[in-house]
Each structure stands twice: as C-alpha cells, then as structure tokens.
Design a binder for these strands. Structure first.
Lengths: 336, 336
DNA sequence: CTGAAAGCGCTAACAG
DNA sequence: CTGTTAGCGCTTTCAG
C-alpha cells in the first residue's frame, strides 16, 4: 500500500493541509515545519498520487498525441520532439495511432478528454465531418493541428511551409535546366501535399521557363511512388526530373528507376520532401526539402502548454515553420 | 463545465449510485431505469471523468512504455503493436524516451507510478544499479522487460530468440561457403546483441566447417556500422561475408562498401538483423533475420493487462518469440 | 502560519 | 432494485 499524504502528515505531526502546502511548495508555511515535512516525505519515500491531485486540480499534466502511425518516421521524429518538450515541462504524452480513420480519431479524442488531458495534438481533421469538427472545437481542451486547414476553425496549427518547399524544389529543378518535370503526389485533397504541388507549379515558373509539369496523383507511400513512377516511365520517356511529394514516394521512384535501368542522377534527377533520416543514407543520397519535424512536435507542445494555462483567453496560435532545400546527389544539371 | 454523474442522476430522477451502476453496466438495475439513465446520459452528452474513476477504483487503464528512442524504427513498430493491443483493451499508452539514460529511466518510471499506471514496459534494466533495479521490482506495478536479463529478477520478459537468430545467420553464411565471416556488433555487455553473437558463433560451427569468425564491437548505429566496416576493409581484404548485429549497422556497412568499391552481393555478402521496413527497400534488398517487433509490443501489453488484474498472484511471465531468416539479395554462394 | 472542512467525480459496500 | 454513506488522495478556501 503506497504511503499517502495522511501518513506523512501524521508522522510529521501536522495536518494533511500543511503537509500538502509543504510539498507543493506553496507560500505560508513556516520554514522549519516545511523542512520537517519534506524530511519525513523523503524518509517514507512518499510519492504523490497524481490521479488524486489531478482530480482536485483539474489538470492532468498529460497531453494526447493523435497521429496516423508512429511507424511513419516523420511522426516518430515529431513525437520525439513533442515528448521531449512535454517531459521538460513535467508532462506526459499519450500516443494514439489513428490511421487517419475518422472513427478512431473521434474515439481516441473522446478517451483522451475523459482522461482530462490538458491538450491534444492531431494530425489533421480534414477527413472529419463538419459536425465532428465542431464537436472537437468545443470539447474544452485546446487542440493543435498539424496542417493548415481551410476555413476559420478554432484550432491552433503548427505546420511547415509546404508551399514554399514545393517552390524551392520547382525552382531548383528548373534552374538545373530540366524542361519536363513530373510531380508525384498523393490524393488531390491532401492539404499538405496540395500545398507542395501548388508551390511546385509556382516555382517552375512555366510561363517564363517553358517547363512542362506533369502532375500524377496516387498513394503517398513507397508502393504508390513505385507505381506512379513505373507508369510514368512507360508513358513519358522524355521526363528528366521528378519531384516526389515526400521522401517515401521518392524511395519508390528509386526502386522503379533501378528496375527500368534508369540511373539517378545520370538519367533522372529526383527531389524528395521531408528529409527523413533514411534519405541521407540511401544511394544516391537524396536531395530533398527539409521539414523540421522535431521542432513541429516541440512547437505543438509549447502551444498546448501555454493554452492550457489561460483557461480564459484561449486565442489559437498558428506557426508556420521554415523549410530548406538539402542538396545531395540525386540531381544533375542539364546545362553544360 | 462538463456534465457530471450528479447532473445526469438529477435529470433522470435517481441517485448517483444508480446512475453509476447503469453506466458501468453493473448488475442490479431495473432495465427501465437503466435505459432512462442511458438516454439522459446520451442526451446530455455525458462523458465520465476517468480521473475520478481511477481514483475510486485504483486502476488507471494506462500503461507506460519506456523505450530508448521512438525514432528507432524497431521501437516504433513495437510501440505500434503495444498501442494497438492496449487500445483494443480500452487502455492508453504513455510514451517515454529514455535514451537508455539511467536517470531518465528512473524518473520516467517514477512519474508513471505517480500516475498510477497499470503496468510498465521497459527496454532493459541492464544499465541500472542493483538498488535501482530493486526499487523497480517492488514498485507495485507489473513490469515487462524487452530483453532476457541474467539473474532472477521479479520482472516479466518478452524477447525474440536472439541466439537462434544469430545461429541462423551463421549457419546460412557458412552453408553458402564463406570461410572468413565478420560479425559487426555493439558493445560487449549489450544483452540482446551478445546473444546474437554467441548464436552466430554456434551457427558457423567453426570446428566442423573451419570458418574463421571476426568479431568487431562498436556502436550499434548506422555510423558505427560504417566505421567498423571501413576499418575491417582496410585490415582484412579476405572477408567475404558480414553478419551485422542489426539492420542499421548493416546499412552502415552498405555505405562503406559502396565507398570502397565493393559490390554487394558480388564482392561481399551481408546479413542483417531485425528486418526493419527499410531493409526490403534498400538496394540490394537485405537478407536479414526477422524479429516480430509488432508482436513483441502486443505480447508485452497482454502480459501487463493480465498481471494488473490479479493483484494477488503475480507470477512473472516470460515469452521468447521466434525468428526467421528472410532471404533476399544481399548474399551469394561461394560454391560453384 | 496552521488547522478544519468542503469538495473534485466516481465507485462500492451496506442497508433498506 | 435503489438509496445512503463512506471513502479514493489531494487541494483549497475559510477561520483561527
């Protein structure tokens, strides 16, 4: 049976009120008594019951992290950033894998709210019905989203500048002299990927440079990248560069290229997006747009922590994090 | 202000006791009243406060997962298995990254215990002092370890059969006709890796086959693999095969091989361990020992859940999960 | 500065 | 079958 506040109060010859005050470091306790209490607590190896404390204070010092899948290295890195930031602030993080399934997302958030978490980080609410989104908005706990949703929702957001990232990739390939550039991306309505796509179109400046963009939609997975690339190779042998919507798609492209006897970068230039750890390891090392994944997680937690303090004025906060083109060895210039 | 049990009791014209009984589905409630309560709860969108429930019942329906780093794909997969199993049982998982730092490990478990988690999954307690280990043993909550510690500790364990995995790798390479085989592994005292090493030595059956094993210790990371391989290549040009202690080490070997102009599998055969997703994507696809990562996570949660029920007879449970050699294209036979 | 007492929201005997 | 009554362990007024 764990030792409780009552135990240490008795042992120290005070009431549990002063014991509590001493332990929580509140003002208004004689120094001597506080030290006495602390000593007893130490001796008895007292461990406060945070469940009880949570019930009394209404704050659980716990955050919820609802992502699609922790096995996705992007989210693993993000989760690590979030967890480090939470840990530094004395909070814990509950991990939830939603697979972007609406029902799972809703039931996870429901459970988290029942546990009275101080805030929730979520992938995206794009797939949810309007009613579900509304339900989340007035759930009481602050929520930060990992994309930039259209519409004026009452959520905070942390997101990398996807449009700018796409633009960087487009500019870069156009500058290298590529004139037929394919962009392999995910489904049309995927917020982040769509932003990368429009950024890419802006970046190539087709009117001025005469670059022909080929946009292909598919699964934003390794297999999806592989399939999209395979089809592309049979249809358009004149493509000299590909911008993949993310690194994993790019890896699929690499595989398809190898199978088609295309060499990277000699026959085909390739740019990814994310800069997952693997991208630097792969052969050839992938040129890609770096996304500050760890920092996204950190920022989301910071926002949540701040928001969970002012219970009154909860103005949502929005952060757009910068991107960076990491030039490695998967692209070559077509200019002599 | 969230609606409480009291609210719905009043609205339904019963006491909170019957309300509670109706909601928790306990026996001894008239069907009609139960349904009335349920209807009211539904209408008022009642959400039980699990913190309060936890305080009253002593069970939090929360598990702690203390691993070294979620960015390690091995742990990500394991975490996913654990989370899925927990979710299916109506539990949540708190994620903690310890970096295998003793202090962090202890303070995380401390916090988890203060939150009254129903159980904890831990990487390993090998680095902890005897006193710290003892402290964990009588912490009250069941703990399952992800390795097979020496000594008779009061912990449960879930672990893959590392020795058998090493043996499979050794047998395989010897059978292909390799006669000088290097094993690149981590520090000497790393339980799991040591088991793989001894398994490997058993597998090659040096006495019968005449295989010469070369054991090299280093960092069990990409960089470590790269460094160990580089040194090896300068010292022993007669090595024709390498068994890497894990896939990440193997990736480092691949990189070093490329830089040294060695082709895999033509000039060098390579076997990994773990079968991380990447290993099938890499070029050439890596032959490796498959470890059921997802299942480890699942099994650990199952054990914890079972143990957290019988508060009395808590006999630790030990599970050793099978391994499998996944033959891909990173090895070749030296026999004609 | 410290004690007494009222909750936080829910569960679980124990009566009726 | 339902109500009454104690708590669970801690925080936090409100008095003294």
């Amino acid at each position: 049976m764990p030792v409780t506040l009552k135990d240490i109060a008795e042992a120290a010859g005070v009431t549990i009120a002063t014991a509590s005050r001493s332990l929580t470091g509140a003002y208004g306790v004689h120094r001597a008594t506080r030290e006495r209490v602390l000593a007893v607590a130490e001796r008895l190896k007292y461990r406060p019951n945070r469940v009880a404390r949570g019930l009394a204070t209404g704050r659980s010092h716990t955050l919820g992290l609802v992502i699609s899948d922790i096995r996705n290295p992007f989210f693993a890195e993000l989760a690590r950033g979030a967890e480090d930031a939470a840990c530094a602030a004395g909070c814990e993080v509950i991990l939830c894998n939603s697979d972007l399934d609406c029902d799972k997302q809703m039931s996870y958030t429901q459970s988290l709210l029942e546990k009275r978490v101080d805030g929730i980080i979520m992938n995206s609410v794009a797939g949810l019905s309007r009613a579900q989104q509304q339900q989340l908005e007035d759930c009481g706990a602050p929520i930060v989203l990992l994309n930039r949703p259209r519409g004026t929702l009452n959520f905070s957001t942390v997101c990398t500048d996807n449009a700018r990232g796409g633009e960087l990739a487009g500019e870069y390939l156009a500058r290298l002299g590529h004139r037929v550039i394919a962009h392999l991306t995910g489904p049309k309505d995927h917020g982040n990927l769509s932003d990368r796509c429009s950024g890419f179109l802006k970046g190539i400046q087709a009117r001025r440079t005469g670059v022909e963009p080929i946009i292909i939609h598919g699964d934003h997975t390794f297999h999806g990248g592989y399939e999209m690339a395979r089809k592309l190779f049979t249809r358009r042998r004149d493509v000299t560069a590909i911008f993949a919507g993310n690194d994993v798609i790019a890896f699929g492209v690499v595989r398809a290229a190898i199978e088609n006897g295309l060499r990277i970068p000699d026959d085909l230039s390739l740019v990814g997006f994310d800069n997952v750890e693997l991208s630097g390891i792969l052969h050839p090392p992938l040129t890609t747009v770096h996304q500050p994944k760890y920092e996204i997680g950190q920022a989301a937690v910071e926002i949540l922590l701040r928001l969970s303090k002012d219970t009154n004025g909860r103005t949502p906060e929005h952060r757009l994090l910068g991107v960076q083109l990491i030039e490695r060895q998967s692209c070559r210039s077509l200019k002599r």
